[in-house]
Amino acid sequence: MAYSDKVLGHYQNPKNVGTLDKSKQNVGTGLVGAPECGDVMRLQIEVDENGLIKDAKFKTFGCGSAIASSSLATEWLKGKTVDEAVKIDNMEIVEELHLPPVKIHCSVLAEDAIKAAVNDYRKKNGLPELKFEESVVH
């Protein structure tokens, strides 16, 4: 299967690979997927005092589309508020990266990772966790 140029671009030059200090109170970490399923994403956000995401990092075990989805997600997260972050929909990632139907689950995983990171941040800061509808792999 051929990859879109955008997926290739993120794969070759992934944005924001790395690790934030998860012991910090203003860092939220989301770890989603499973090794047995062939994808694991870890996405982290660092939130400033105004509730803005000032940094985002990822590490992903998975195919090129999974790497690209998480790389793109970190780019989109920076500068957003935490509340805006959870509104990112997996289908926006699908459209931006031109993911084929068999790779939609990669974008779902990225969306899940964002939500998990935000909830981790909320929990650390005494906020109730947000409830999300179960994502479905289309």
């Binding site: 794969y11 075990f61 998975g62 195919c63 090129g64 999974a66 790497i67």
Partner: peptide, 11 residues
């Protein structure tokens, strides 16, 4: 170990 085959192929 710890890298996914298809992601690896893409390299």
């Amino acid at each position: 170990k710890y890298v996914e085959g298809e992601g690896l192929l893409m390299g």
